[in-house]
């Protein structure tokens, strides 16, 4: 069992968990992910590592509550335990001195971009950070990202904080202004990563994205996470999760991401109904 040592509610459905997992923390690197299960009946879900503390033996993950499992996870409190927690999985980010790099985080994607930006800065890169969110309330880690970047741009879709617009608006300006960028790292929702790649392709700027496909085991065994990279099938869990964004078949990814949507919806409604039926009749809030 793995203890939640810290919980921070970043926004109404956006949570940060710091979880005690010394063996994972000992080896965790930027770009890798973990798989967890909330309880005995739980599904295995992958979350990208947002930070780690080798001394304390903890891993930090940030997640948005979207389905049954993430809602259940969000309902846990500090001191509660997770059933299972395994990692670090996947390949670490490739970090070297590229000179000048851009790190783009959209929405919850700011969390996994942070340790990559930090590692790139520590390796001597000049790091330009761009972070965006739908609205002000969903922005987090501005200060933390600031510390990992030499320059940070913040933008919101609705203009409720700083500039109004999309991360790609800032990215285009940055590329135009500073010609010699060696690498772009972009993590966020699929449409955002796709838009970033379409933009950087115009400029021939190599772009790395992190793909959060549906997974079961996360060790190369099931092939559920397969993605097409330059026409070749790769497993995001062992070959990735990071790939050359210009080679990713985003259209395929988007369709594979919703394979279980109707079933996920069913599980979620059932969960919500159960929660709303908080027990006054003595049934245990249970089965219908």
């Amino acid at each position: 069992m793995y203890r939640v040592v810290k919980k921070e509610v970043l926004a109404p459905t956006l949570n940060l968990f710091e979880i005690e997992a010394p063996l994972v923390a000992r080896k965790a690197m930027a770009g890798q992910f973990i798989i967890l299960r909330v309880d005995e009946e739980g599904e295995r879900i992958p979350l990208t590592i947002a930070d780690y503390d080798r001394g304390k033996g903890t891993i930090t993950c940030v997640f948005q509550e979207v389905g049954k499992t993430t809602k259940e996870l969000g309902a846990l409190s500090e001191g509660d335990y997770l059933q299972d927690f395994v990692g670090p999985l996947g390949m670490p980010s490739h970090v070297e001195n590229f000179g000048r790099v851009v790190c783009v985080g959209g929405g919850v994607g700011v969390a996994p971009v942070f340790p990559i930006a930090r590692a790139l800065k520590e390796t001597g890169n000049e790091v330009i950070g761009i972070m965006g969110a739908r609205t002000k309330d969903l922005l987090f880690w501005e200060e933390k990202m600031g510390s990992a970047c030499n320059e940070l741009h913040v933008i919101t879709d609705d203009g409720s904080y700083m500039r109004k617009g999309f991360v790609t608006d800032v990215l285009r300006e940055v590329i135009e202004e500073k010609k010699d960028i060696g690498l772009c790292v972009a993590i966020g929702p699929l449409p955002m990563m796709r838009a970033v790649c379409d933009l950087t392709r115009e400029y021939g700027l190599k772009t790395v994205v992190s793909l959060n496909s549906i997974m079961v085991d996360g060790t190369g065994m099931c092939g559920c996470c397969r993605v097409s990279i330059g026409g070749e099938t790769k497993f995001a869990c062992v070959d990735g999760p990071e790939f050359d964004g210009h080679q990713v078949d985003f259209a395929e990814m988007a369709r594979r991401a919703v394979i279980y949507k109707p079933l996920e919806q069913q599980a979620l409604s059932r969960f919500v109904e159960k929660q709303e039926h908080s027990c006054v009749c003595g049934c245990g809030g249970g089965e219908k």
């Binding site: 739980g42 065994m221 599980a267």
Partner: peptide, 19 residues
Amino acid sequence: TRTNLMKAYRFPEADTPIR
């Protein structure tokens, strides 16, 4: 794996779906 290890045949009692 979905069926045996994750007990998808008991979905939605077990969380892992299979189609």
